[in-house]
């Protein structure tokens, strides 16, 4: 899906936990997530901290979207 949406002409950032799978699939902008059942959250954290964590990942995703890339790139910390 990532690839086909990008092919239609839009930059896509793939937020996922198992980044090597995303590499195999062919995503160009990849942002690592927390865990498979809760990629953008961590149920063991208090609500506010969890939201701050989620915001950090979304901000990283937006940074990836505003960054020019020439090939597959994983945006780590």
């Amino acid at each position: 899906m990532v690839k086909e949406i990008e092919r239609s002409g839009l930059p896509v950032v793939h937020v996922c936990t198992v980044t090597p799978i995303s590499m195999t699939v062919g995503a160009n902008r990849i942002v690592p997530a927390i865990a498979i059942p809760h990629p953008l959250g961590n149920p063991s954290l208090p609500k506010e901290e969890e939201k701050a964590l989620r915001r950090k990942i979304v901000e990283k995703a937006l940074k990836a979207l505003t960054t020019e890339v020439t090939g597959q790139t994983v945006f780590k910390d």
Binding site: M1, V2, I5, S8, G9, L10, P11, V12, V13, H14, V15, C16, T17, S22, A33, I36, P37, P39, L40, V58, A61, L62, L65
Partner: peptide, 14 residues
């Protein structure tokens, strides 16, 4: 998305 004037996409996977 393109015809709706969207500029970029965040796609999340589990």
């Amino acid at each position: 998305l393109l015809s709706a004037g969207v500029n970029a996409v965040i796609l999340t996977s589990t």
